[in-house]
Amino acid sequence: MTAAARLAALDALPAEELCTHAEQALAALVDVMNQETTLLRAGHLRQAGQLTPDKARLAQDYVTFARAIQRQGTRLTAEAPAALARLRAGHESLATQMAENLRVLATAKTVTEDVLTDVARMVGQQNRARTYGSAGKVATDPAASAKGIAINRAL
């Protein structure tokens, strides 16, 4: 089935059915984002990362239904106003969950970077030569503090 045929099939769905599909996709997306947020708060980064494929698929499904609803807005307003109102409320719930999820992701990223920076600093200090310079102090080389450690900032 072509993309145009899939879009036409969505647009041809009865108003209540289209809204129901969108609500189900929305609820599943909010649920997986809540699971991810909970895992991240608990420090289970690997388990949270395993949810990424599901989250991406559910987000794509929801966007597909949301676009169909936008295209059919006039018809849906006339035929299923209550379902459309439920969907709007659910969308607000998604926005709230996304904001919380992004906040927790940013915190996890910052904590991870801080830990890796501290480890790099400690490794650099351990590998540093402990000799006295001309002023009678232990020489320091700030460039050597992170030798051998790389931080991937793409989280």
Rank of each mutant, 00 (worst) to 15 (best):
D114F: 05
R88S: 13
C19Y: 07
L40T: 02
Q97V: 06
Q50W: 07
L102T: 11
A56H: 02
T52K: 10
Q35F: 01
L45A: 13
T117W: 06
R71Q: 07
K109L: 09
E23A: 12
E17F: 06
V32T: 04
K109P: 00
L29Y: 05
R121W: 05
T96G: 07
Q47V: 01
V111P: 02
T110V: 06
D61W: 04
C19H: 10
E16N: 12
H91I: 00
A59Q: 12
T77Y: 04
L76D: 08
D114S: 15
D11K: 12
Q97M: 14
I69Y: 06
D54T: 10
D31G: 08
L18K: 08
Y62K: 10
L10G: 14
A15S: 15
K109W: 01
R67H: 13
D54W: 09
T37G: 00
A99S: 10
T37K: 03
R86P: 03
P14F: 02
E79W: 06
A27C: 03
A42F: 00
E92L: 11
A25I: 01
E16K: 11
A68L: 05
D118Y: 08
V32E: 03
A106V: 02
Q35K: 09
V115A: 12
M122I: 14
N34H: 09
L13G: 10
D31K: 05
V115P: 01
T38E: 10
L45H: 07
S93G: 15
D61K: 10
A120Q: 07
R67C: 11
H91E: 13
E113M: 14
A89N: 03
L76I: 15
R121N: 10
R103H: 08
L76K: 02
R57C: 03
D31F: 05
L29G: 01
N101W: 05
D114V: 09
D114Q: 12
A108Q: 12
H91Q: 14
D54F: 10
V32M: 00
M98Y: 04
Q50I: 03
L84R: 02
L76C: 06
L94Y: 14
Q50F: 08
L39P: 05
T117I: 13
A56R: 09
A106C: 07
A28R: 13
T38Q: 11
Q47I: 01
A108E: 12
R41N: 11
Q72M: 09
L116A: 10
G73R: 14
V111E: 11
H21R: 14
A80Y: 06
S93P: 00
A89G: 04
H44Q: 12
H21W: 09
I69N: 08
Q50P: 00
E92M: 04
V119I: 15
D114H: 13
L18W: 04
A83W: 01
R103W: 02
L29A: 08
L116E: 14
A66L: 12
A68T: 07
L29V: 01
T117S: 14
P53T: 02
E23G: 04
G90I: 03
R71H: 14
D118C: 12
